[in-house]
Design a protein around this nucleic acid. Structure first.
Length: 491
RNA sequence: GCCUGUGUAGUUCAGCCCGGUCAGAACACUGCUCUCAUAAGGCAGAUGUCGGCAGUUCAAAUCUGCCCACAGGCACCA
């Protein structure tokens, strides 16, 4: 079977200065959905996620907690893994930037770039506010002053190794404009093109070790640790190569890398530049999703409206949370999230439509179903091609909406045929078409609500199947093992 | 300030690229109805001057201009 397609998807690695938040769970769910979908398409897939654990913030927070950084991040990482398990995430590797294989890969990268003279010793300049006792960024400043203390910060200069990002400006623009390195959605691509056209400056890729000891030591200078970029971004290479060199050859480059818009710029500039510098192919696409508001408000700790994905999952179940997030917000847009709308979708769509269809069908079958002829009037209403196209375009909400349209058709079909009034063959035929439809639906929904689809398979005795089996009439006669409620109503 | 977007029923949104059943879907609401099922399902209905003004056109939510409101971006915080 030569030429089998492959699919490599990544999430960003999450920073371990705090517990997992809903946004991170969302990105990871989306990546999981894509990975599972492509697997069902018959492709070989690799799905990477993980944690970014070095740097000043972690160092400081650990100190505040009177812990060693490693102890501190171990605890946070355990929470991430717990959350992903709860959410039924099927990653192939969970990389930690503190993993020794990763640290070695980063050193190798830095050596290569250093030898190619893409890294040179220079100075990192930044603004230091004596009042804040902190470094500020350009965007922190208002009229060139620290807005908190209303004073002009000192410009501090310290030795740092620099990466020649500026060298890559034209090559990057070319890659983006040609579509070789695609940035989605379109709005984000425009943003990046404008930014790069404004000119790329070299960036610092190290900090003095005496200041930031919690990082990877530069292989060519013990007094420096790697700054976040080479360390964090390189995970996409090291995390894949960890699964074996064969694997790396097979899966590289990434087919799509998901992220929220806050980290797009580094992923659209520094990241591809590091790859070009080290002689790697660029990822095919970056896909940028939006932010959430909670009940119309920005999510923030100070407002106290942060919703924990662990809380939601424990309360409503992984599949409801997964379904809700994928269905409620067009991927790539900002969107609003609320427990009420989650409940509404859980009750109306998962329980009343899908759950009830399965339940009433199983009930009418009275223990068995018999292979019969197909009713095209029903089965022709499934829009599999459109659903596939929506998935190709990352339009998860549309795909789900079309799948649920078919579920509606099935429910209407029951009403129209009134199988409880029928006998013998006529009745068998109606039930067969419903059972067969449920089988097809369960394959289509597998990526989104894997736990539920497994239950459906168990109930009807279906085999686990991929999209080759998304054809009607493939169900043979069978027994209903047991009847169970897929989604209990909430409140 | 500059650059990008968004503004359509109570709510969330589709439609806008390629002008003419385009005024839609879902939820919520109201009425009717089947009874296999998780008091679920089915059918029917009301709701909007498509942000504002002007222009192009036989015809504009759909194209153009201006205005208003909101959001995002404009480098070392990820």
């Amino acid at each position: 079977m030569a030429g089998k397609k492959k699919f490599y998807v990544t999430t960003p690695i999450y920073y371990t200065n705090a517990s997992i938040h809903l946004g991170g769970a969302y990105t990871t769910i989306a990546a999981d959905v894509l990975s599972r979908w492509h697997k069902l398409l018959g492709e070989e897939t690799f799905f990477l996620t993980g944690t970014d654990e070095h740097g000043q913030k972690v160092q400081e927070i650990a100190e505040q907690n009177r812990r060693k950084p490693k102890e501190f991040v171990d605890k946070i990482v355990a929470e991430f893994k717990e959350a992903f398990k709860l959410l039924n995430i099927s990653e192939d590797n969970f990389i930690r930037t503190t993993d020794s294989y990763h640290e070695q890969e980063v050193k190798d990268l830095l050596n290569i770039l250093f030898k190619k003279k893409l890294i040179y010793k220079g100075f990192y300049e930044s603004y230091y506010c004596v009042g804040c006792e902190q470094y500020l960024t350009q965007s922190d400043l208002v009229d060139g002053k620290c807005p908190l203390h209303n004073r002009i910060p000192e410009l501090k200069k310290e030795e740092a190794y620099m990466f020649k990002l500026s060298t890559f400006q034209d090559k990057l623009l070319k890659a983006i404009k040609s579509g070789k390195f695609s940035i989605l959605p379109e709005v984000r691509r425009k943003e990046i093109v404008t930014f790069i056209e404004g000119g790329l400056q070299d960036i610092s890729i190290s900090r003095l070790k005496e200041k930031i000891y919690w990082g990877i030591e530069l292989p060519f200078d013990k007094n420096h640790t790697a700054w976040v970029w080479p360390d964090a971004l390189w995970n996409y290479v090291s995390g894949l190569r960890h699964a074996g060199k064969e694997n790396f050859r097979k899966f590289w480059p990434a087919d799509v890398q998901l992220m929220a818009k806050d980290i797009l710029r580094v992923h659209a500039t520094i990241w591809p530049a590091l790859l070009m510098g080290a002689g790697y192919e660029l990822p095919r696409a970056l896909f940028v999703h939006g932010y959430f508001t909670i009940n119309g408000q920005k999510m923030s700790k100070s407002l106290g409206n942060v919703i924990s994905p662990i809380y939601l999952t424990k309360k409503y179940g992984a599949d409801s949370v997964r379904y809700y997030l994928m269905r409620n917000i067009p991927f790539g847009n900002d969107g609003d999230v609320s427990e009420q709308s989650l409940k509404d979708r859980h009750n109306n769509e998962l329980a009343n439509k899908l759950g009830n269809l399965v339940s009433r069908t199983a009930g009418m079958c009275k223990g068995k179903y018999t292979k019969s002829k197909l009713d095209k009037e029903l089965t022709s209403k499934l829009k599999f091609k459109e659903i596939s196209a929506d998935m190709e375009n990352y339009e998860f909400d549309r795909a789900l909406s079309l799948i649920f349209e078919y579920i509606d058709e099935c429910n209407a079909y029951v009403q129209m045929k009134e199988p409880w009034k029928l006998e013998g063959k006529q009745k068998q035929e109606v039930l067969y078409n419903l059972v067969d439809s449920i089988r097809v639906i369960s394959i289509l929904l597998e990526s989104f609500i894997p736990g539920t689809c497994e239950k459906i398979r168990g109930q009807f005795g279906f085999e686990r199947a991929d999209f080759k089996k998304v054809k009607f009439g493939l169900t043979s006669s069978g027994k209903i093992e047991k009847s169970e409620i897929l989604f209990k109503k909430i409140e």
